[in-house]
């Protein structure tokens, strides 16, 4: 049989390319729009202000906190959903996905009813310890985790469902305990999904606004994250709002692009 030596390049259907270009431009236009508004002259001064410094710090704490919480409780949740059969599983899965469809402000109000000072869990907690989640940095992390963790859970659960379970069986016949199988086989096999799930979680937490302002409140230096700072600034200081927005874009693009290259670079 004769093997063709010419490299076959996939030709893209023009209609598909045209629609894809529309898709890309759709994302580009708002970005260009906001960049066109950037007050370049006053930028250094805005970035040096306490408001911005505080908001950057809180946003990093909140988003990293949400990623940490999602790793500690979200990964086990994904594993149980993928691997353990139990009653009402569809209900539990729906519950996990709820924050993705709930308006974040509603999510924040629900968090208040659950973990607020008069909430069904927050109330007894306050009575016993005097500890209150809302209006503290912990409240910001809770709100961010609530809206962002579902991204990790669904991504990793889907990956766990598709992973070839015979690898896990093979590992156990080689003497690996269930915990070792999880650590040395299952998690490495789904690591691309874990990484993208964590990135999505981080990105969603960084942009989180509604649940945060409703549950955690808005106080510069304590609970005012970048999106809250933008919101307040939009009505008082448009230049600052634009500057902070652009700063958020730079931070998130930087992190997403660099991590993407590191983790998925080999495949693209």
């Amino acid at each position: 049989m004769k093997v063709p030596t010419r490299r076959v390049t996939q030709s893209a259907p023009p209609a598909l390319v045209a629609l894809a270009v529309i898709g890309a431009v759709f994302f580009l236009v708002p970005v260009v729009g906001i960049v066109a508004q950037v007050p370049w002259r006053s930028l250094p001064e805005i970035f040096r202000s306490d408001i911005v410094a505080n908001a950057v710090r809180l946003s990093l704490i909140a988003s990293v906190g949400a990623v940490t919480a999602a790793t500690v409780i979200g990964l086990p949740l994904a594993w149980v959903l993928a691997r353990v059969d139990f009653a009402f599983k569809p209900l539990v899965r729906g519950l996990v996905l709820l924050p993705m469809v709930l308006p974040p402000v509603v999510g924040g109000a629900a968090l208040l009813f659950g973990f607020g000072r008069r909430g069904i869990v927050g109330g007894p907690l306050y009575d016993a310890t005097g500890f209150v989640l809302p209006f503290s940095v912990w409240g910001v992390i809770v709100a961010s985790t609530f809206v962002a963790m579902p991204f990790l859970v669904i991504t990793v659960e889907a990956a766990l469902r598709t992973v070839d379970r015979r690898y896990e069986g093979a590992a156990s016949t080689l003497g690996a305990s269930p915990w070792t199988v999880l650590r040395r086989v299952t998690i490495p096999l789904v690591s691309p999904a874990v990484v993208s799930g964590l990135l999505l979680t981080w990105a969603r937490a960084l942009g989180e606004f509604g649940a945060t302002i409703t549950f955690a409140g808005n106080l510069q230096g304590r609970t005012q994250t970048l999106p809250l700072a933008v919101f307040v600034a939009l009505e008082t200081d448009r230049d600052a709002a634009v500057a902070i927005s652009v700063l958020m874009m730079v931070i998130s693009l930087g992190v997403l692009v660099s991590l993407r290259d590191r983790w998925w670079g080999a495949h693209s």
Partner: peptide
């Protein structure tokens, strides 16, 4: 006796070498 305590060597169909190692 759990599989990891059995001392049974298995060559699986297709080899099933761990792709991440």
């Amino acid at each position: 006796v759990a599989p990891h305590s059995r001392s049974v060597g298995v060559v699986f169909q297709g080899g099933l070498l761990f792709p991440h190692l």
